[in-house]
């Protein structure tokens, strides 16, 4: 894992490079559009509003309770899926660089995170709008979002590394991951609440996403996340770290000729 850690710290030294590069990516994606990244904000707002209306009826839930819950969950879910979806072709995307210059590979991975965090910060506007609109009381627990988000990202980092190497080696991985994520969306407590299931349901217990959501969503809605969630997420992170950094060490030299 030494080589991977070295790469990691070298990439941190080049933070101006990947940060500016990620800004350039976003600029490129919305070149010629007046609203820029606010487009995603608006489309997310519309999506949440209509899905909220339907599910409130469907599950017989008061709208002013379900909508903030749905919105908080969906903003984070959107971030998680977009990071994971982009992870599978992160190296292929930077072909021009990998093929021509020797750079720490974490530069490309950090660039992916930086780009997605910027977009996430745009989306969070919808969340604040909904929280204020439905008069959700914000208390000190809200601050727990920060450690929650950091823990979430450390876990995502492991997943991104793993999928990045898998995706560059096997090009049929991206569609598999994509359809897998759709399934995960429906079995995760995003549009429905954990209380709606019978207590001790395996769907919740075996789904890592429910723990991730707990540590970021629950504090926003004004209560303390389950301690179990922190334990599961931390263990997951440490195990993932060993696996992903070992993979990085072993397969990094091969990426240059897998990128074709």
């Amino acid at each position: 894992m030494r080589k991977a850690l070295n790469d990691f710290f070298q990439a941190i030294e080049k933070r101006r490079f990947w940060f500016n590069f990620s800004m350039l990516d976003i600029k490129q994606r919305y070149r010629g559009s007046v609203l820029g990244p606010l487009w995603i904000t608006i489309s997310m707002g519309i999506f949440i509003f209509f899905v909220g209306l339907v599910y409130a009826r469907l599950f017989n839930q008061p709208l002013n309770e379900l909508l903030p819950y749905l919105c908080a969950g969906f903003v984070f879910w959107n971030y998680i899926t977009s990071v994971i979806n982009e992870s599978v072709d992160v190296f292929l995307h930077e072909k021009e660089f990998i093929d021509n210059v020797s750079l720490p590979f974490f530069c490309y991975i950090f660039k992916l995170f930086s780009r997605n965090i910027i977009i996430f910060l745009h989306n969070i506007v919808v969340l604040f709008f909904v929280l204020i609109l439905f008069g959700v009381k914000i208390n000190l627990y809200f601050l727990l979002v920060i450690p929650g988000f950091i823990l979430l990202n450390l876990n995502l980092l492991n997943i991104v590394i793993f999928l990045a190497f898998l995706g560059i080696r096997f090009r049929d991985i991206p569609p598999i991951i994509n359809s897998l994520l759709t399934v995960v969306f429906f079995v995760s407590p995003i549009t429905w609440k954990p209380e709606m299931l019978p207590p001790g349901s395996l769907i919740l217990k075996l789904n890592p996403i429910s723990y991730f959501l707990d540590i970021v969503r629950t504090p926003i809605l004004g209560s303390m996340p389950n301690i179990d969630s922190y334990v599961v997420v931390s263990v997951f992170m440490l195990l993932g770290f060993v696996v992903s950094f070992s993979i990085f060490d072993k397969y990094k030299p091969r990426v240059a000729y897998w990128v074709i």
Binding site: L24, Q28, E96, F97, N100
Partner: peptide, 16 residues
């Protein structure tokens, strides 16, 4: 320090 020019793509983004 190494600077290399290996191909015309040379680590540049075509859309930039």
């Amino acid at each position: 320090s190494v600077s290399s020019l290996l191909s015309l793509q040379y680590g540049m983004k075509p859309w930039a």
